[in-house]
């Protein structure tokens, strides 16, 4: 009976286990930050994503059944059709309002402007949400094999959703507009003043910053992508202004924007596949470098 010896060896095994686990976690952390093992992660991610896809489909059906009439399948289909039609009409209405405001400028570019830009879109289902409480992202069921790659803009029938952050063969991760790290060059529909939309903060609202003090900003104004920065196509609806923060002491005014998209109940999105983001990394370098 050598209890002391056993205790020592137990302690040793314990510390070795902790060391190995913490060491492995740190190693994976470094390797992920250097994007060295993306292939291996995708190998694990893909089969689980397929299971998530299956589960999300059943969950959506169940959730829809709970939300609507329980006994009429036909009614469910009709509701879904009407909902989509309603979304499309809302978007058309917003587009028409936008056209009204832009009429003067569009006169010069009349031949150039089209309400339905020639953008190719891939329809994708939302299969999971981010596991982290710190980030706002979605996982969709389309990946590299469907032509979806990192950097592609993502929208829904209601407006802009986000951007493809990570992509594997059969699934992709979409960084939402409401995420802390998200920023989008935006402009107001009426006054055409530009600003930068940032995610984060309480609730699901967005903050539009860097709007000049001279620009008239009113509650209810439509906010769209400006196309500046080259990350997103111009004129995709984002949301409407619900509050304006203006101080004469400040150089710029800010506005709180309610996104047009309900991110909590998003089931399908469109990935814009033929928009080429402009490479602006050349401007990151300092002169003389």
């Amino acid at each position: 009976m050598n209890l002391g010896g056993n205790n020592d060896s137990t302690q040793r095994i314990r510390w070795i286990t902790f060391g190995l686990l913490f060491g492995l976690a740190l190693l994976l952390l470094v390797m992920d930050l250097t994007r060295g093992v993306e292939g291996a992660f995708a190998f694990i991610r893909n089969p689980i994503a397929a299971l998530m896809d299956w589960t999300a489909g059943r969950t959506d059906a169940y959730a829809d059944a709970l939300a609507g009439p329980r006994d009429l399948q036909l009614a469910g289909v009709q509701i879904e059709q009407l909902r989509q039609e309603n979304d499309m009409l809302r978007r058309e209405l917003e587009a028409l309002r936008e056209v009204q405001a832009e009429n003067q400028i569009l006169r010069e570019y009349f031949d150039y402007v089209s309400l339905n830009p020639t953008l190719d879109r891939v329809l994708a289902s939302v299969i999971a949400r981010d596991t982290s409480p710190s980030f706002r992202s979605l996982i969709i069921d389309k990946g590299i094999l469907d032509g979806v790659v990192v950097g592609m803009p993502v929208e829904s029938t209601r407006g802009l959703v986000g951007i493809i952050y990570r992509s594997s063969s059969r699934s992709s991760q979409v960084l939402l507009l409401t995420d802390n790290t998200s920023s989008v060059a935006a402009r107001l529909g009426e006054s055409r003043a530009t600003g930068v939309l940032q995610g984060g903060g309480l609730g699901s609202t967005l903050l539009m910053d860097w709007i000049t003090l001279e620009a008239p900003v009113t509650i209810g104004d439509l906010v769209l992508t400006s196309g500046l920065g080259g990350k997103y196509p111009a004129d995709i609806p984002i949301g409407r202004i619900i509050d304006v923060q203006r101080s004469e002491a400040a150089l710029f005014q800010q506005a709180i924007v309610q996104p047009a998209v309900d991110f909590n109940n998003l089931e399908a999105v469109f990935v814009i596949t033929n928009f080429d983001p402009v490479d602006t990394t050349i401007f990151d370098e300092l002169p003389g470098q």
Binding site: L21, A25, D130, F135, L175
Partner: peptide
């Protein structure tokens, strides 16, 4: 958890 998050893989494990 990290494989399905924006979080770098390993951070949640720690």
């Amino acid at each position: 958890s990290d494989l399905f998050s924006i979080t770098p893989v390993g951070l949640s494990a720690l």
